[in-house]
Design a binder for these strands. Sequence first.
DNA 1: GCCACTTTTCCTGCTT
DNA 2: TAAGCAGGAAAAGTGG
Length: 158
Amino acid sequence: MLDSVTHSTFLPNTSFCDPLMSWTDLFSNEEYYPAFEHQTDADSSCLKTSGIKSQDCHSRTSLQSSHLWEFVRDLLLSPEENCGILEWEDREQGIFRVVKSEALAKMWGQRKKNDRMTYEKLSRALRYYYKTGILERVDRRLVYKFGKNAHGWQEDKL
DNA sequence: GCCACTTTTCCTGCTT
DNA sequence: TAAGCAGGAAAAGTGG
């Protein structure tokens, strides 16, 4: 069964659209760039590009998902937008890695309107998903795996 | 207002 | 030794 949140919005060549003027627009705003001083110019450029791109989008996107795991999933399914913040380790098994932990936390914080969000807090929330089967533990740092209760991440089910 | 669920916050301990 | 990550406990937020 398709996940209504994801599928229509991450088809190839589908422009990213930010629903709440959320993170992409926020990152296109210079006010938010100081938070990314630790990142490379390439990262900032990528984020800024995403924001510009979002302005002419045509459809609502999944990044309005209310749950953290959906937010993470949607970033993974939108490689143009995650700017290398997340990447698949094993796409078929649902194993992924957080490459830029601080950037991910910042995005989530913007999404939740919480500028005190850190990766430490975000990762704590992710670890709670182990209990519910949405995520499975992988014994490697910054590596997670979608569990049996996670949906919408499988390529052949999109 | 209550309840269930999710997320946030703080803290401690472990690993790299 | 320091920094980063994992997990326990409790509080806060949210929606039904």
